[in-house]
Amino acid sequence: MIPWEQLDSAAIPGSGERLRLKRRGTEYSIMLGTNELMNSRLSGSEEALASLAVEALRERQRPHLLIGGLGMGFTLRAALAATPPEATITVAELVPAVIAWARGPMAELFDGCLADWRVTLLEGDVLAMIRRPDAAFDAILLDVDNGPEGLSRPDNNALYDPRGLASAKNALRSGGVLAVWSAAPDSSFTHRLQRAGFQVKEARVKAHRGKSGARHVIWLAVKP
C-alpha cells in the first residue's frame, strides 16, 4: 500500500490546533489531530450540502449563496453545477493555507472552479460575514467543523449557539435556507434550530457518492 505523505501543515487562526494536508497517490486528506476533516474519496455528502440547499431555492433566478469552508471544493463545485448563470457564490475560508492548497497541490480537485466569474473567495471568518449589517443571502452553507460544535476552534461554537443561529436567520432573505453539514446526528441542534424559528428538515446522505457505507447529516433550516 502506498504510504501517506504529509505535504504541509498550517495553524488555524484563533486556535492552538494545526491542519495537516496529506496525500497518498491521488487521494488527499486534511487532518486535525487524529480527526480526518475531509478526504478526496468521500465527496457525496459535501456535494449534497449544496444540491439540497439549491433545490430549496429552485424558484430563485439570482440566488446569492454563502459557503463557510472551502475544504476540497466539493460543495463549491456542486453549487456551481446546480445554480443558474445569474447566481453569485461567496466562499469564506478562515485558514490562508487551505486557499493556497486549493490553488497548489489540490488544484486538480478544484478543476478551475475558483476562476468561475460567479465565485468570490474571501479569506476570513464566515461568522463575521454573517453578522455584517448588510448581509442578505438566499442560502448559508456551513461545513467548517465535523458537526454543530467548534471542533476546529472554540470560536466556531458561536455559529451554532442561539445567538449565532439568530444572526444566520437575520442574514437570510425570506425563504432562505441555512444548511449545516455534520458527520453524525445531534438532536439538541435540531431543537436549537427550531427554537430559533426555522422550519427544519434533517437529511441523511451517503458519505461516498453512489456507494454504500457511512451516512452523514445535513440540516436544512428554512427562514419562514
Rank of each mutant, 00 (worst) to 15 (best):
W101S: 13
L151R: 11
R103N: 10
L66F: 05
A87F: 01
A78F: 06
V98S: 02
V91P: 03
G69M: 03
G112M: 10
L80H: 04
V119Y: 02
T83W: 03
S152A: 15
A136G: 13
R60K: 15
D145E: 05
T120A: 15
G68H: 02
G150N: 07
L94Y: 09
D145W: 04
N156F: 04
N146A: 09
D125H: 00
A139C: 09
P96F: 00
I89G: 01
A139P: 06
Q61L: 10
E149S: 15
G150M: 04
I89K: 05
G69T: 01
F137G: 02
A102Q: 02
P133Q: 08
W117P: 15
N146G: 09
V119I: 07
D145F: 06
I89P: 01
F110Y: 14
G104N: 09
V144Q: 08
L66K: 02
L114G: 04
Y160D: 00
T83V: 14
V144W: 04
R62P: 08
I130P: 00
A100D: 15
P63G: 04
I140K: 01
R163H: 08
N146D: 14
A97F: 01
F74L: 10
N157L: 05
L151N: 11
G69F: 03
F110H: 10
V98E: 00
V91R: 03
